[in-house]
Write a protein that binds this DNA or RNA. Sequence first.
DNA 1: AGGTTCGCCTGCGGGC
DNA 2: TGCCCGCAGGCGAACC
Length: 271
Amino acid sequence: MPELPEVETTKRGIEPNIVNKTIQHLVIRQPKLRWPIPDAVNALVGQKVEGVSRRGKYIGVHTKAGTLIIHLGMSGSLYFVDVGTPPLFHDHVDIELLGSPIVMRYTDPRRFGAMLWQEGDWLEHELLKSLGPEPLTDEFNAKYLYERAKGRKQAIKMFIMDSKVVVGVGNIYANEALFKAGIHPKRAAGNISLARFEKFVSSIKMVLSAAIEQGGTTLKDFVGGDGKPGYFKQELAVYGRAGKPCIECSILLKEIRLGQRSTVYCNNCQA
DNA sequence: AGGTTCGCCTGCGGGC
DNA sequence: TGCCCGCAGGCGAACC
């Protein structure tokens, strides 16, 4: 499932292949994604791509007419194929570029992803306008989290995965960052000291930026590949390791469900 | 308003 | 081998 590093890698991968290119044709084979793809996206045809950006796990493809907003959901990916390559069953959208021998293709088996349209400032889109800060900016810091968490009884893991608090911290990295910071996933968000938030914030920034850095090394295979950066080689200390020994203290890692999501932690190292 | 649960989907792994 | 079942998972919607 694409987490923020995968989305950033995808953004960097498609950018050089579509910026300054004119969209010649749009083929929508399956409009039923998480929401139906709006007819308005057809405004893309004839438009030149002026830039690509990312906000949280949303990718924006900007033109003068408006922005195509893409979310990869859990199983979506963008990749490039030669013009004329027959689509596979889950290849829902093709974006053909004028004078380009390759086509940008959106594939998404589970269709949890989305393709939306926004005119003007794309950040004003309903789904984007109340998102929290980007995790790798200075705006996301311990003081911000501490203030935001005041009085909240919600488990810290759920709190940090709330996109209104901060974007881009998905299940895998929430588990990893909590372990790195030594914070128990069920601890009430409002019951964490500023000092512990300092450690938590730097853990989050560390795991995310390390993953993005590694994602960059897969970019050379982006065109012609399946577009999936895949799981980064970054060693995961807890996620997917329930029942295995903690890498720090060797006691067996526990697994619980928190907000219906798999949560793995060390009962000894995290309090 | 804070907090929890639901549901969209398909692939995959376990059980038989 | 093949079938069935249950589950995973981002995240907005709906509910409490």
